[in-house]
Design a binder for these strands. Structure first.
Lengths: 342, 342
DNA sequence: CTGTTAGCGCCTTCAT
DNA sequence: ATGAAGGCGCTAACAG
């Protein structure tokens, strides 16, 4: 593994000259540069970024900590991050926290040790500890997808509350009066916001929410399956389900099918987050979609801004994208015998 | 940002002692350790992995270079890699080559500069250049998913040829005599192998393959869409399609729907790679599936082995997983008026 | 059990 | 236009 000194010796120059060639900095005569470049080629020299970073205090590396790259929403988001990062000359380290605050903090610690220049974080829980840890080391961080109340930090997310409101409103307009919300765990801001939007829509229609109209479970197919089973077994069975994410929607669908309930004839089902077009054979679900790629891109841009303007303590930004509701078959037509509202 | 010296001073010891505490190496008295640990806590010291790696020549980082994390096959594979890597104390840097050999080599160069300890590589093309580059720096690499002829290297992949043979055989047994293969680009080993298996099955049934029964295109939904359109417009329209991957399958489905062809009644459609259960509402496609997670895990294990046994030049391994054929609706029932083969 | 010395490979500072 | 010295934060190799 040749070093800068080997190259210098080989070219008959000082090592700093080689450094200047690599970095295109300072003054160099054409001949010297040519000689050095040839030496580099001959030895197959590759600069050691580690040593460079040790000196310069910059690694040109960003960290993306999210909950589960297996979910296409996050996959798409990750592509947005990677494309923006790599265009700006940064590489990306990514880690899956699996919705565990402990894994998250373990990873963040490792990444801090690796001296990453900045963090993109999808927090597992609406807690400030991880962010405080990062702040304490003066490393910039942009939170994606989920709000974290009680701390000043850049956030890029979607208006989950409004999206849930819209979806619920849609169901209400179709005549549904008894709706269950299959929600993610408490403490996950998107889940909580979606529950809130759901409740606001009910109240806006003058409907008193039942005590068990909000079910809590994992943001997974399994979670959706279990919650839907529970909903379908309720004494006063709901005529519509609102699922808090794509996997929950699929799980709920499975549960409905198993229970012999047709969607949407017997029960309507709407959800959050679409699957990418490339993965869907029969577009079926009515959903509120979030611009995942765009969110990743925007968050990375903000982070890169912070990196550029180093200490210049600008105000923290909160970018909130709107969700978009796509009506398809799973929400069904008007429910007969009920009066649509407004 | 406190350094090891600050901690040493604070604790009244030499810096090497602090190093020993951090790394749990060498002998230490209980009191010294306690004192150092307290100093670490008080100063909020975090070791600098960069400096450590510069000395130790190990970064505890692996690189995963694949073509497109957006494809659930690779997403699942990536989880297999990450889980295995993180269990062994390694972190992961991943990059998308987008099937471009140039992007691939750019990334590999950056990753070499970053001194990653090893590579997991899904080569964009069946060329040896990238692997030779990595080898030339004496860094271990395990190739995943695709064969690279002409170079001695560890490979973990699936038996694409056999999988395509099986799928084609299935179609033949259902009575299809005129089948088109919607294949990926030339030079991608999985695509080529699948074409080969397809042809072998035709020949084994005594069928002379038509001259345009193999179409080439991108491994994407768009590619599948275009190839299927082409196939459906052929003078002697095929009665069945074999798609080389999951996205091509979906694209072909779209094209069939648009052309008013019902699957499987008017045309059968089978493919490679399933979508994860969590993403599929109506399991429909007959497919040959590859154990993506397992492939990622296995490849990482081999890489970690190499890392452990450092110079011990063992024989290179080639692990070939079997594919598994799952018969669902898209392959249809027997075609009437044709004689199924043995 | 603990400390000293001497770099790892690179680049900033200052000199020539 | 080029080079010499010194140090980033850490740890191997030796002392003691």
């Amino acid at each position: 593994m040749p070093t800068i000194h080997d190259v210098a010796k080989h070219a008959g120059v000082g090592s700093i000259t080689v450094s200047r060639v690599i970095n295109n900095s300072g003054y160099l005569s054409k001949e010297t540069r040519a000689r050095v470049e040839q030496a580099i080629a001959e030895l197959g020299y590759v600069p050691n970024t580690l040593a460079r970073s040790l000196r310069s205090k910059r690694t040109n590396t960003l960290a993306l900590v999210l909950t589960d790259i297996t979910n296409p929403f996050f996959t798409t988001l990750a592509r947005g991050v990677e494309d923006a990062a790599s265009k700006a000359g940064y590489t990306l380290i990514f880690c899956n926290s699996d919705e565990s605050a402990m894994k998250e903090s373990t990873y963040v610690n490792i990444l801090l040790q690796k001296q990453v220049d900045g963090f993109l974080l999808v927090p597992a829980q609406s807690k400030t500890t991880t962010i405080e840890l990062i702040h304490s080391r003066a490393v910039p961080v942009v939170v994606i997808d989920r709000a974290v109340p009680g701390i000043a930090v850049d956030v890029v997310r979607c208006d989950s509350e409004e999206g849930a409101f819209g979806l619920t409103r849609l169901l209400l307009e179709l005549g549904h009066r008894h709706i269950a919300c299959l929600c993610g765990p408490k403490g996950v801001s998107t889940a909580d916001d979606r529950a809130a939007g759901f409740l606001r829509a009910l109240r806006s229609a003058g409907i008193a929410p039942g005590r068990d109209c909000i079910l809590r479970g994992e943001l997974s197919q399994e979670g959706g399956y279990l919650m839907a089973q529970q909903a379908l077994r309720m004494a006063h069975k709901p005529s519509a389900l609102l699922a808090a994410n794509n996997f929950i929607t699929i799980g709920a669908m499975k549960a409905a099918q198993e229970a012999g309930e047709r969607v949407p004839e017997d029960i309507a089902l709407v959800g959050f987050d679409d699957l990418p077009a490339a993965m869907v054979t029969f577009p079926f679900f009515t959903v509120a979609i979030q611009p995942a790629y765009e969110m990743g891109r925007k968050a990375t841009e903000i982070l890169l801004q912070r990196l550029k303007s180093h200490g210049a303590e600008r105000q923290h930004e909160e970018v909130i994208f709107p969700t978009q509701i796509i009506v398809r078959r799973s929400s069904g037509d008007s429910v007969m015998g009920l009066h649509p509202i407004g």
